[in-house]
Design a protein around this nucleic acid. Structure first.
Lengths: 204, 204
DNA sequence: TTGACAACATACTCGGTAGTATGTTTCTTT
DNA sequence: AAAGAAACATACTACCGAGTATGTTGTCAA
């Protein structure tokens, strides 16, 4: 069944989020599932393959999240709505997004097996294409005079660092409503847009 | 000699930066020094102790960096100069600052030995006190009407995420001058201050 | 000069973990 | 219902790395 695979991915994502890649053993993942290694290795060739599966799933969530806003005409409005959708998705699928982050970091550090490395490079390209969507919206907004940006690459990096930051500091509060999350998203996006020098201030 | 200890700290910081805590073996550190485990374990009780030593050294650098600006009267000016000093220090001592970051993350994930955990908690308190310095400057600037901030804790987090981000994306370019670094610092600080809604815009 | 200690190097132990090899139990298919 | 395969569980191996125990070399004091 395909649901079993998804269940393993979700459990492993939480493990990797809580304790990092190397600190997490396959037995940890299995224990969380109430199962044993056999089940995990039946669906995934290796620990690296499992990790890559989470990475890919996380990126697919991100693409899906911003999809409805990609063809908004006004570049500043498009950028802001994509940013909000991205940030919202980060909060909603935090375990997966942390794995994406760890994957990027893992690739920057050289140390992995060649097999995992090539797979990580493909996934990183996948992520670069995602960032490029934002980069282009940002460039268009700048050309329209709606943003004060002189170093495009740096600005994109800083924007993503802010939008992704819930990965590190967010944790669900008991009794938290959708409106609470939406307010958080607005504040984070306001910070990012303000940092980019968006005209009109953070109140929109 | 005390210089040997410092040399080990610096080498280990680079190793931890490049490959992470668990991926780095004591033998790796020794190899980088052209030595063996014996030398490391002669100066440090354990791998965790070595890690904590780097953490502490990194934090001491940060305190020293912002010290000259802590008693500037105008809160917005104080905040901005402290932010610039912090960001500059992040870039200059990147290996140590990455270890500080890893240490905070390592504490959030529960999994460590009790001995390391208590030491990490003390170091984290040390870091909280550091953040508090910024938090107070931020609160005062807000009260003076120089910043548009409604969620103080969130704003401090977002500001630090931006200021610390060189940890991840900065790497020294060949032929890089002091002026280049200073320009980077200005851009990062401008982003952070803009995100906080600083009046007067990012050009200063 | 010798004894004692600091500053390492060398040679081991031992636990944890990725991966494998091999059962065992449903489920499907004909 | 019989055969086969999917979906696991169990038992084992092989290796890597933290920590230790024990040598070895220089240095300095008395």
């Amino acid at each position: 069944m395909e649901g079993s695979r998804a269940e393993i991915l979700a459990a492993a994502a939480v493990c990797f989020m809580d304790r990092g890649y190397t600190e997490t053993s396959i037995d940890d993942v299995a224990r969380r599932l109430g199962a044993t290694k056999g089940r995990v290795y039946h669906h995934f060739a290796s620990k690296a393959d499992l990790f890559a599966g989470i990475f890919r799933a996380g990126m697919e969530m991100d693409y899906a999240a911003i999809e409805p806003f990609r063809d908004i005409a006004d570049p500043l409005d498009r950028l802001e709505r994509m940013a909000a959708a991205h940030c919202r998705q980060i909060i909603r699928s935090r375990p997966f997004q942390r794995v994406v982050w760890q994957g990027v970091q893992l690739l920057l550090r050289g140390a992995t097996t060649p097999e995992l490395r090539s797979e990580l490079e493909r996934l990183n390209d996948y992520r670069d294409a995602y960032e490029k969507i934002f980069r282009e919206a940002l460039a268009q907004a700048r050309d329209a005079g709606a943003l004060a940006v002189d170093n495009l690459g740096l600005s994109v990096s800083l924007m993503f660092v802010a939008l992704n930051s819930p990965i590190f500091w967010y944790s669900p509060r008991s009794g938290e409503t959708e409106a609470d999350i939406e307010k958080l998203v607005r504040q984070v996006v306001a910070f990012a847009m303000g940092g980019l020098g968006a005209k009109g201030g953070p109140d929109r």
